[in-house]
Amino acid sequence: MTASRARLLPWLVAAVAAAAWLFPYAWMVLTSFKTLEEIVQDPTAPLPRHLDLDAYREVFAAMPVWRYTAVTAVMAGSIAAAQVALALPAGYALAKLRFAGRPFAVGVVLACLLVPAQATFVPVFLMFAKLRMVDTMGALILPFAASALGTFLVRQAMMSVPDELIEAARMDGASEWTIVYRILAPAIRPTLVSLLLVSFVLHYSDYFWPLVMTTDDGVRTLPLGVALLREQGTGVRWHIVMAGNVVLSAPVLVLFAAAQRQLMRAVGGR
């Protein structure tokens, strides 16, 4: 009796916890299938009367969903790719090469870990405004093309690669370029995959930076578009906002489902 109860209690609590996190998603999807009439008359009715796709039609009519998605994906993809490409040689120099300025360079990277973009966006915005770069992909991508955290993680991973591997490659006449991108990159693959995934997901979902660096529709990203659905006087039309929310989060949740293990390891393993 007590043994089965000792096993039942954690099971029940876990089920309740899972529900507390799954219910909001379910409510989002259910609301998105309702009509304005249903939202007004009985907003807390558990199920929509029938699967009504009008809210989705309205979302696609209210904003260029495909263009926003493309802009967002290109932005997040470029940032993630640039971070990996730049962190590799920098991490190699910091982990494996002995030179006079190394402690200084490590110090700069570590110091930047403590500076959030939220503390620097005013001068950066003014600089981009002067260069007429507000509302360009450059203003969205460049500030994050190098990542202090990414550089640090790649350096840590490279430190555990034996020097002999590099020495052997040098004996074979491999260039430093080849050593960094062809020999060391595969050797620290799990770290690079983590960095790529986490960085993509983070910037795909980012709201703050695209909001302050764009003033018009030119390079607007999906999170901004969806937030605008709410601001543009939708009033009680929550079914449309929730449909936009589904459009925004579904791709991320699909990616999450596919790469759950890697993401958890990337976040948990630091």
Binding site: Y25, W27, S205, Y207, P223, V226, A227, G244, L248, S249
Partner: peptide, 10 residues
């Protein structure tokens, strides 16, 4: 993993 925007609106 989901966007803060989606969470805030929800």
């Amino acid at each position: 993993v989901v966007s803060w925007v989606a969470v805030a609106l929800l």
